[in-house]
Design a protein around this nucleic acid. Structure first.
Lengths: 193, 193
DNA sequence: CCGGATTCTTAGCCTATGGCAAGAAATGGC
DNA sequence: GCCATTTCTTGCCATAGGCTAAGAATCCGG
């Protein structure tokens, strides 16, 4: 049972020793088996998690019913459906353990209590959310301005670990293309520079 | 000098009469002339605004130097660069008054004070940020799964007012296409259904 | 009211990517 | 180790949307 993970996380984010002692015990260690769902479309997210080990993929369905990957989560990432968790509204996404996972779980009510009582806790929460917003915006602009090949190359550079866990089909939909196109792009990169 | 705007906004978001009296006086009424910049790339956003009247466009440049519209702001909208304002980092965007604007301005330091001292204020702030995140995510997925024509039709339906203020060229880049393509799409819609 | 600048449309051609389908390769249950 | 299933690649053709350039329409300062 390795709590060092959470301890380091919150220490780096300016929580004092006393605050850590308040915050850490609220996190509950939970495990998910491969293919378990952490979040399902139609339900309100009542929890979020720090991913200690494992691999999670989130996805939704487009109007034609195709599976579209919205995110990948690796050890160390925070796994949360921001809008469902905070706005208490049903999500449209699925978050599924693609491998066995160990997580540190926090529920909404406890989050609210910590958020409103500990300044450093809300600062870290806000910073994390804003960081996610920033990443999503970058991805969004890249989708408009960059070619699929460039988005692929950037993903290899920024998150190489994903390639050890996700199938090319899922990576393709994350990049906004089909697996066929991704295959061609990969071939082209191998052949030329 | 119409403060009703702010008063209604925060009243709807659960601030008490006493809290309103603390919060409202901190907002400063400022005006921008057409083409003024509220935010410029390379600088840290020190303020955010409620747009009382006018019209603002935000944009950035892609790797080839093309102007890409990232958002439009109409009266009633909150005008903020979330990541620059909260992470205190230089932005990559420009936010420009496309028409003369009247805004209610708040600076970072004052925001922090209110955020950490008034629970309802931070609840509304968080809800607004999460709402923006949600909207950005929807847009992002739409960019992957929908045809340009469908994105255009949805924009007409969701934010028809934009068409009274923005040029088709700017709307095109917002939709992720060229003005040429948008023109073809519009023609096709007029011709057929 | 004029002339330049901007915006919008249209046309011709081009390219990135999709759709479909069939192999090839890898994976996994038993 | 074998078969079924899934993943990945490849080929052929189709299409959305880009690029360039040239008109048409609109706007705007003087």
């Amino acid at each position: 049972m390795n709590e060092e993970f959470l301890k380091n996380y919150f220490t780096e984010r300016q929580l004092s020793k006393e605050e850590l002692e308040v915050v850490l015990p609220h996190f509950k260690k939970v495990s998910f088996e491969k293919n378990d769902y952490l979040i399902e479309a139609g339900k309100v997210a009542g929890y979020y998690w720090f991913l200690d080990s494992g691999f999670i993929r989130s996805y939704t369905f487009d109007p034609e019913g195709n599976d579209v990957t919205t995110a990948f989560y690796l050890a160390g990432d925070i796994v949360i459906d921001w809008s469902s968790f905070f706005l208490r509204q049903p999500t449209r996404e699925y978050m599924q353990a693609a491998e066995p996972c160990v997580c540190w779980e926090l529920d909404y009510k406890t989050f609210q209590m910590l958020f409103h009582s500990i300044e450093a806790f809300r600062e870290q929460g806000r910073a994390t959310l804003v960081g996610s917003y920033f990443a999503l915006k970058e991805r969004s602009i890249s989708m408009i301005t960059d070619l699929a090949k460039d988005r692929y190359l950037r993903l290899i550079k920024d998150k190489p670990d994903i390639f050890q866990h996700a199938s090319l089909k899922h990576i393709a939909t994350y990049l906004g293309i089909t697996d066929t196109s991704l295959s061609r792009i990969r071939k082209e990169i191998v052949t030329n520079g």
